[in-house]
Nucleic acid binder design. Structure first.
Length: 836
RNA sequence: GCGGGCGUGGCGGAACGGCAGACGCUACGGUCUUAAACACCGUUGAGGAAACUCGUGCGGGUUCGAAUCCCGCCGCCCGCACCA
């Protein structure tokens, strides 16, 4: 390893410009040096402990904007700190290259999605390099590359083998604009497409699903052990939605059994009617002739229109429904109760049917009032007048005691739930059950730009998986990719027609592609062995690197991506490929950088701020600092470039101080106290900067660096600036700046006469003794108001501190004629004297 | 409706229950310069000549002491939303 003094341009050694900061000259030069020396190359076999820092990979959308920098440059600071601390750091990057964004952009620009990606990806990589990110591009992952997506197919086939992938006919969400089905998770506000905002509706289609519900319990329970933001965990918990209750059977007079799920089996005596989802399979059978016309009309309406009509929030609460003409018998009291259908009961949750207890459920209450159905009170709140159904204007859902419930009268609620379940079980009328809100994951997409599902359909053999050795099933690049409502692959003869792996006869390929969330559900494993050809990744190497120690990304992925990624990790564990079930030990979400107007940056509205001009004008280092200094990283906020000059000024000052050290003689004398004060400041700054990066408090970390630099500026003409302590300060400043401003720190390191590279140095150690201070200033309050400040020894005891405070002339003056009521003395903090 | 978060100068934001406004921007004044840019030195919450007083969305409370904790409002943001 050579020093870089020979690579330093002449003009910086001699002449007036010697200590001038010029990012235009510094940044490209060191970028080149890092590439030439491959200092970011990741070694799988290092003796150092591993650290896997992952940042969510982007869509190859074209160019980066400052939001991408915000999302990546800041985790880069953390990764660099870890590296300097002695970890073997993996900080990889790739591209989420399949899917609608690329496909839609390609359609808009009338070029092939692969062309679109091939144009954008190099451009984006150049921009990541511009920011000075610590990326080893030899590990890049591109999900649209067959080398990658064949492993999607491999995993799919393994899941099929284990019964975790299955094909099912059913009503699925359809987006008429994107011309594809959507997963439940991709439908917002009842019927809005997450991608394009169009109204979506349900269609009957045969589709592939992943059985994520199999893992519901584990997905819920293990959240407790993760170092993730609480709100993300809460969102996942709500999404998984565990409900404890009971499954009950009601006999219909037609002889059929109607099963319901309820969380309140203790209200079963108050069930005065039943409601089925319009799509419930029994509806047709039990509907009486007199009611048939009405019921059929309602069912048709529910299937075709309800979702759109439900758009308005008021509409959603307004109950509609139709009587089927059928009656059921309440199993606990033999009451004959009518069976209705209504769209407020969802086929996809529970059993698709409910027992309605209007007295104690808000929705059932509203329905009963709308259709004049009977209301029976079975829970009586204590210390209140008896509830009268006619006088109620809302359901009573609180605690109390059971009434009108036979032998259970007087049983306290909510303990009543378990009591009743036990009894129902004994009677064979019901049993305890846990129901989940989570649904299985629909992965089929009728789009071109995705991983082909490796299945063929044979007239003789049925649904046949493509054998592993025939992978990849390659996506043909010459297909017509424009959306037509069916997969473009359906008209691609060469793709479509193949031979059956089972019988050798002619077969048709599955033409749907996989949801791109499949790609992102395991991509980080691929970074650990990006060219491995025997499996999705080398289990041995993966074992060294995973789980990911720190995952950074946007809050918008709080549910979908993170839930699927957790699911896949558990599946891969159960296949024996990995040894852990949770992929991301620690998660941090950055806030969103908005446009100056406070709205989301959007390409179409022209509100995106690109980094290139800012880098040209202010430098990548200044831009990195500015993004960190805007405010708490986890908060985000509107973009403005007003403060960036402040960051440039800071860099210039630091640069000037450190440049001066390179050629100075530092063997001078200075007062011992000055040296001690400087070293104390240096070590306190190490502590602050380290703690702040560790806690993701990047804005205050920079404030600490600025304060340190400003103090050095004040001292630069003092004798202490000619001592070894000054060099310690300058070197420390350089090392502390290295993660945040990698370019100028490298230049400063070189100017200090040190060997390349600053990024391969150890993070400065902080010395508790040196960091301590001898004297501190303590505010002295009278009745809670600061009246004086005294300078005292740092280690003063409670009593001595109080005595020192009372010795102050000013305090004595103010206490003349007063009586001391109370004295509070907090060492290191303050003194407060309460007087009357 | 349910769940979570937030509210501090002209602006971005600091502040283990202990000096509110660190740090930066802006603005103003000054030094340097033929001049400009850069840089450097001041001032910059409000009122007041000063002593001092008032100040963290509003109203209460706990405490020697509250931006911070508790109760009740107001406003903004995010997530879920007929999940039985």
């Amino acid at each position: 390893m050579t020093t870089t003094s020979d690579s330093r341009p002449e003009q910086h050694v001699h002449g007036a410009d010697a200590h001038r900061y010029d990012h235009r000259e510094i940044e490209p030069r060191w970028r080149q040096a890092w590439q030439d020396k491959a200092i970011y190359k990741v070694n799988d076999d290092s003796e150092r402990p591993k650290w896997f820092s992952l940042t969510m990979y982007p869509y190859p959308s074209g160019i980066l904007h400052v939001g991408h920098w915000y999302a990546f440059a800041v985790p880069d600071v953390f990764a660099r700190l870890q590296r300097m601390r002695g970890y073997n750091v993996m900080f990889p990057m790739g591209f989420d290259a399949f899917g609608l964004p690329a496909e839609n952009a390609a359609i808009r620009n009338n070029i092939h999605p692969s062309t679109w990606n091939n144009t954008n990806i190099p451009q984006m990589k150049r921009q990541y390099d511009l920011m000075g990110a610590m990326i080893d591009w030899s590990r890049e992952v591109n999900t649209s590359d067959p080398e990658y997506y064949q492993w999607n197919q491999w995993i799919f086939l393994k899941m099929l083998e284990k019964g975790l992938a299955y094909r099912k006919d059913g009503a699925v969400w359809w987006c008429p604009n994107d011309q594809t089905v959507l997963a439940n998770e991709q439908v917002l506000e009842g019927n809005i497409c997450e991608r394009c905002g169009a109204d979506v509706y349900k269609r009957d289609l045969e589709q592939w699903y992943f059985r994520i519900t199999e893992y519901a319990e584990e997905l819920l329970n293990e959240l407790d052990n993760l170092d993730w933001p609480e709100r993300v965990k809460t969102m996942q918990r709500n999404w998984i939605g565990r409900s404890e209750g009971a499954r009950l059977q009601f006999e219909l007079e037609t002889g059929d059994a109607l099963e319901v799920f309820t969380t309140r089996p203790d209200t079963v005596f108050g069930a005065t009617f039943m409601v089925m989802a319009p799509e419930h399979p029994l509806v047709e059978k039990i509907t009486t002739d007199e009611q048939r016309e009405q019921v059929e009309a309602y069912v048709t309406k529910a299937r075709n229109e309800t979702e759109i009509e439900r758009l308005s929030l008021d509409e959603a609460k307004k109950k509609t429904g139709v009587f089927t003409g059928a009656y059921a018998v309440n199993p606990v009291n033999d009451e004959r109760i009518p069976v209705w259908i209504a769209d407020y009961v969802l086929m996809s949750y529970g059993t698709g049917a409910i027992m309605a207890v209007p007295a104690h459920d808000e929705r059932d209450f509203a329905f009963a009032r709308a259709f004049d159905l009977p209301i029976q009170v079975v829970i009586q709140p204590e210390d209140q007048k008896a509830l009268q159904p006619a006088a109620m204007d809302e359901a009573y859902v609180g605690p109390g005691r059971m009434v009108n419930s036979g032998q259970f009268d007087g049983t306290p609620v909510p303990e009543s739930v378990d009591t009743v379940i036990t009894w129902l079980d004994e009677q064979g009328r019901g049993k305890a059950e846990v129901t989940w809100r989570l649904r299985d994951w629909l992965i089929s997409r009728q789009r071109y730009w995705g991983t082909p599902i490796p299945i063929v359909y044979c007239d003789g053999c049925g649904t046949v998986p493509v054998p592993l050795e025939q992978l990849p099933v390659e996506l043909p690049l010459d297909a017509e990719f424009k959306p037509t409502g069916q997969s473009p692959l359906m008209t691609h003869e060469r793709f479509l027609n193949t031979t059956c792996p089972s019988c050798g006869g002619p077969v048709r390929r599955e033409t749907d592609t996989m949801d791109t969330f499949m790609d992102s559900s395991w991509y980080w494993f691929r970074y650990t062995s990006p060219h491995y050809m025997d499996a999705p990744f080398d289990p041995e190497t993966a074992k060294k690197w995973t789980p990911v120690d720190l995952y950074c990304g946007g809050i918008e992925h709080a549910i979908l991506h993170l839930l699927y990624a957790r699911f896949f990790t558990k599946v891969l564990r159960d296949m024996g490929l990995v040894d852990h079930g949770e992929p991301f030990t620690r998660l941090r979400n950055q806030g969103m950088i908005l446009s100056a107007e406070g709205v989301k940056m959007s390409k179409s509205r022209g509100t995106q701020i690109g980094p290139d001009d800012l880098v040209e004008e202010h430098g990548a280092d200044a831009l990195r600092l500015h993004l960190m200094f805007l405010g708490p990283w986890e908060q985000g906020g509107p973009w403005n470039d007003r403060g960036i000059t402040g960051m440039e000024r800071f860099i210039r000052r630091a640069f000037q101080i450190v440049s001066g050290v390179g050629d100075a003689r530092l063997d001078g004398d200075a007062p011992e106290a000055d040296i001690r004060a400087l070293r104390s400041l240096t070590h306190r700054t190490i502590r602050r900067v380290t703690e702040d990066i560790d806690t993701f408090s990047f804005n205050t970390m920079i404030a600490a660096l600025i304060e340190f630099t400003n103090e050095l500026m004040r001292l630069r003409d003092q004798p202490v600036a000619r001592t070894a302590a000054w060099r310690e300060a300058a070197e420390t400043l350089t090392l502390l700046m290295a993660p945040s401003t990698p370019y100028v720190a490298e230049e400063m390191w070189s100017r200090l006469g040190n060997a390349f590279s600053v990024h391969q140095q150890a993070w400065p150690a902080f010395d508790e003794v040196l960091a301590s201070v001898d004297t501190i200033e303590i505010p002295v309050q009278i009745n809670g108001k600061v009246r004086d400040k005294i300078v005292v020894g740092a280690g003063l005891s409670t009593d001595d501190l109080l005595a020192a405070a009372k010795a102050s002339d000013k305090i004595q003056e103010l206490m003349v004629g007063k009586t001391i009521v109370k004295e509070i003395s907090v060492p290191g903090r303050l003194v407060n004297i309460v007087v009357r």
